[in-house]
Amino acid sequence: MSKTVTCLYQDQQKAAAIVSRLEQAGLSRGDIDVYTDASDTLIDDLVDEGVPRSDAHAYAEGVRRGRALVTVECDDDAVDRVVGILDGEGVLDLDEQQTSWRADGWQGHDASASGGVAGMGSASSDVASDLAGSGRTTRARADAADVGGSDQVIPIAEEELHVGKREVGHGRVRIQSRVVERPVQEQVTLREERVDVERRPASGTTQAGTISGDPFQERTIEVEERREEPVVSKEARVTEEVVVRKDVEERTETVSDTVRKTEVDIEDERRSQGTGTTGPTDRKR
């Protein structure tokens, strides 16, 4: 049996976010209705979906005041999961809302005071396009009751595992060269010449022929002093090398995961015609 779960939200954006979460959880978009327009038929529409009329009046008043109403039709076993999703950010307590409205003088929903409310506006999904204009999302639904001549379909799905690859950084090696200076000392022996000039009296009698030439001849003697200075030169030589290379290797890695597959069990409990006995159970996978 199917049930209708309803929740009132602060605004249309909050409702759009909840609808997106419901779809991500696997609920069919056709089982979700969003009301943002308090039309004259809103109460009857909610009653047709199984909402009590008293609550339908309150929901209609909330929509008229700019709130957004989300209704979800689901099976009994999915009610708790749907309620857990709907009870999210922006949900309003209907009883508290009614108490507040009655304090302002509200006696019940007045259909003549209903005014159109803009659609989802800037909501970013197909929810916005569904709500624009009409204010309500209406999709075809699958009947939960047995209806003659109608087909009920269970999709059989199977997942396939596709493994790709992408490059990721695994760290880096940076090598940077720089020049540093250190003081060095070397010893070198330098030679320096010095010229001494000494003037002294002659001893004894100068004999003719001791001094060659005429002693009264003008003479010039020139002696040059020389000395050595250190000369510094530098020679660069390579003492070692730093070689950077990148090696590439390939490896095979096994990726483990799980894939889902739909399996169907068919139990045929119909009695065999003419025998009045129950036939065997047919179970297929």
Rank of each mutant, 00 (worst) to 15 (best):
E198I: 07
A103K: 08
S150T: 10
G171P: 07
P155S: 11
G108P: 03
T210V: 09
G149P: 04
G116W: 15
A118E: 06
A132K: 09
V83W: 05
D151W: 08
E181F: 08
D87S: 09
R139G: 03
S129L: 13
G171V: 08
V168R: 12
G213D: 01
D80S: 08
G84K: 07
R174L: 09
R172M: 05
A128I: 03
Q207T: 14
S203H: 07
A113D: 14
Q98W: 15
V197Y: 06
Q187L: 02
V173G: 04
R139V: 01
R199P: 00
R178H: 14
G169D: 15
R172F: 12
D75Y: 04
D104I: 08
R191I: 00
V82L: 01
D77M: 09
G135H: 04
S203W: 06
D95V: 15
R141W: 00
G121A: 15
A123P: 01
E96W: 06
Q152R: 14
D110I: 13
A128H: 02
M120S: 06
R102T: 10
R194L: 07
S177Q: 15
G164A: 10
V197D: 05
S177D: 14
D130Y: 08
D130W: 11
G88D: 09
D143W: 04
G164F: 07
V91I: 10
E96I: 02
A144E: 09
D110V: 12
V82W: 03
L86H: 02
Q187W: 00
P155W: 04
A78D: 13
V163P: 01
L86Y: 03
D146P: 08
V197C: 05
T137K: 09
V163G: 07
Q97L: 15
E167I: 13
V195T: 12
I156F: 03
A111T: 11
L131E: 00
R81F: 08
S212H: 12
T99K: 12
R200W: 03
D80G: 04
V173P: 05
D214A: 07
A202C: 09
W101Q: 03
H170E: 09
R166P: 05
